[in-house]
């Protein structure tokens, strides 16, 4: 078990060999894990105080001068600088890499003010911006390591709490923009991101014992969406369930639905937060309360299969 935010912190440290990499903080480096970079390279770390709007545009200025800035804060606090991301970074296509940690209701006991359930949706609407939500610390590290070669802005959501490690020794499978098929099956495709990838895998195992064969995909990149994989899965399985610790409006489920209706429409169910705010509770309690556990996914699978013609 490890937290994706730790993967982010390790990646920044590993990227420090590139002299153009700089790190920007808004008083949450201890939490987002940029602190390791700060300790090793204070000369390339910029404290922006508790000021997210300024931080993002300082990043834009650095990017325009040839640097590769990595800025992080809580996912929820990135949102107060949305227009800076829109007008100052996405519009001029400056490669500033924003990481929002503590995303989703899985964040837990801090309560609804800290549980961003809309970040993936809002950043996905911005031209030029790549949006990611990896599920384990290895893939988080690997995706972060690929960002200096991206040449455009990005948003990555990481999580506060620990999740199982899936990709140890399998780093070569991980590429920005390419979904990863973790389990092969023919009856339904479960497309998940972040924490819910693990719930999806548990669901697939449980469904197997009931004679239902499910594909499970880790769709760590929500934009650009791996439409090639989606098209092949909708044809092969004929039904799709999406799963994310995020609003059912506009996130992974929205992105998948928007695509499949234009190509190979198949029955689809969405597992996500149903247009409501969270509250204070433990991580597992939150997943249960929001309907995001493996048994919820299994129920959705049965429902969607029943809808197949």
């Amino acid at each position: 078990m490890a937290a994706t935010r730790d993967g982010y912190g390790e990646a920044l440290l590993a990227l420090a060999d590139n002299p153009k990499v700089v790190v920007l903080e808004a008083d949450l480096g201890k939490s987002t894990k940029s602190l390791h970079f700060r300790k090793a390279h204070p000369e390339r770390t910029v404290s922006c105080g508790i000021g997210e709007q300024n931080m993002l545009l300082v990043g834009a200025g650095l990017a325009s001068s040839g640097y590769i800035p990595f800025a992080s804060t809580f996912a929820i606090f990135t949102e107060r600088a949305f227009e800076q991301m829109r007008n100052g970074i996405a519009r001029p296509n400056l490669p500033v890499h924003l990481c929002g940690s503590h995303g989703g209701t899985h964040t837990g006991t801090d309560g609804s003010s800290a549980q961003s359930i809309e970040d993936l949706a809002i950043y996905r609407t911005l031209p030029n911006v790549v949006v990611m939500h990896p599920c384990d610390d290895v893939s988080t590290k690997e995706l972060t390591m690929q960002l200096p070669g991206l040449g455009k802005p990005s948003y990555m959501r990481t999580a506060r709490n620990k999740t199982p490690v899936l990709y140890e020794g399998k780093e070569s499978q991980i590429k920005i923009g390419k979904g990863i098929t973790l389990i092969e099956g023919n009856d339904v495709a479960i497309i998940a991101c972040g924490v819910l990838v693990h719930e999806a895998m548990e669901a697939a195992k449980a469904l197997q014992s009931e004679g239902i064969s499910a594909t499970v995909v880790d769709m760590h990149t929500i934009k650009p969406l791996d439409t090639e994989l989606l098209d092949s899965l909708s044809q092969k399985c004929g039904a799709i369930v999406t799963a994310e610790d995020h609003s059912i409006i506009g996130g992974l489920g929205g992105a998948v639905a928007e695509h499949i209706v234009t190509k190979h429409p198949v029955p689809m169910e969405k597992i996500g937060v149903h247009d409501r705010f969270g509250e204070s509770a433990g991580s597992e309690e939150m997943l249960e309360m929001m309907g995001l556990k493996s048994h919820h996914i299994s129920d959705a699978v049965k429902k969607v299969i029943a809808r197949k013609a």
Partner: peptide, 18 residues
């Protein structure tokens, strides 16, 4: 700098200075 939304240029200039 691509301006047009007020209050952004000083932060951007700060990034250029750093």
């Amino acid at each position: 700098f691509s301006a047009g939304s007020l209050g952004m240029g000083l932060s951007y200039g700060m990034g250029c200075s750093i």
